[in-house]
């Protein structure tokens, strides 16, 4: 299907130029991987006057790790996240999330920044960034700002981005000297699917945990109530059951053609139980390999 509407295409080589182009146009669209944008152009959901391809901007293309902070450039693809040594060694759960995004041909293009700018409720990066308390780095004509992931997501497909702003990077602070995690994603089958529910868990020293849920509310849900219950405690079956019982109160799943709200809610509890055990055992060095599907 051809794209019906016409637009100008720019491939700036600096963030400054990109921001200038963004502010110059009425309805600009940012192109990174394009896996959402091109479909939206075809379906006329987006009808921009300018498409600004950020893949030519060097400073957006790297993954760096410095002073306990991982910085993922806005043009970094999920495949690059999967292949990154520093991610594999220090943030393996990021790779675990990346592996569930689409399939190879999608991951070779799609970016995490794009994922959180599209900000659909089922975005895989949502619960990840919520749990890591990541910062979204944004540049506009008036300068830079950093937005906490919890403040970034405003609703299904709505974010904190302002007109003529560009996401330049995502900063993920290492939460502790040593940590482990687990991402469990519900799809309708083993192949590529959009999450119908997802659970992300981080296990930190001192039996501290972070829990975030995806696709069961317009924005990722950080389950602080559950975290409070868990923190410092031994992971007993009763404790897990108590946490599970809290889940329905924290989420607002919908029924659509992908799943009913009953199943989403039920599965959040199942996935939480499996995820927390996996995260905890990974923390102690004997959990399941990262990337195995727990459901």
């Amino acid at each position: 299907m051809p794209i019906l509407s016409e637009f100008e295409y720019f491939k700036p080589s600096s963030v400054r130029e990109a921001v200038r182009l963004l502010s110059k146009h009425k309805k600009p669209a940012v192109l990174a991987g394009g896996t959402d944008l091109i479909n939206n152009l075809k379906e006329e959901i987006d009808q921009p006057d300018a498409v600004i391809d950020i893949k030519g901007i060097k400073e957006l293309s790297g993954i760096t790790y410095k002073n306990g902070v991982l910085t993922i450039g806005a043009a970094v693809t999920f495949s690059e996240l999967l292949d990154s040594r520093v991610i594999q060694s220090r943030f393996p759960v990021i790779a675990e999330v990346a592996k569930t995004v689409g399939s190879v041909g999608i991951r070779n293009r799609a970016t995490m920044a794009g994922n959180i700018c599209s900000a659909v409720a089922c975005a895989d990066s949502g619960p990840l960034l919520a749990a890591y308390e990541a910062l979204i780095l944004v540049r506009g004509s008036k300068g830079k700002r950093k937005v906490l992931a919890a403040k970034w997501f405003k609703g299904n497909k709505r974010t904190d981005i302002k007109k003529a702003e560009l996401v330049t990077a995502i900063e993920i602070p290492l939460p502790a000297r040593r940590h482990a995690g687990c991402y469990v994603k519900l799809g309708r089958y083993s192949g590529e699917d959009l999450a119908q529910a997802s659970v992300l868990i981080l296990a930190l020293p001192g039996k501290q945990y972070r829990v975030a849920l995806g696709a069961v509310s317009p924005v990722p849900v950080r389950a602080s109530k559950i975290e409070r219950l868990l923190n410092g405690q031994h992971l007993s079956d009763e404790l897990i059951a108590k946490c599970q019982a809290l889940i329905p109160g924290l989420i607002s799943p919908i029924t659509d053609i992908r799943a009913t709200k009953e199943y989403r809610s039920h599965m959040c509890q199942v996935m939480f139980a499996r995820g927390i055990r996996a995260a905890a055992s990974r923390f102690s060095g004997n959990g399941p390999e990262y990337g195995v599907n727990l459901i």
Partner: peptide
């Protein structure tokens, strides 16, 4: 195949009409 109350097909695509992949 899922239809809504107006007889419109809700999943006319492989995003929501899932056919098996090599992993299935």
């Amino acid at each position: 195949m899922r239809f809504d109350a107006k007889g419109r097909l809700l999943n006319p695509n492989f995003t929501d009409y899932k056919i098996p992949t090599a992993m299935d």
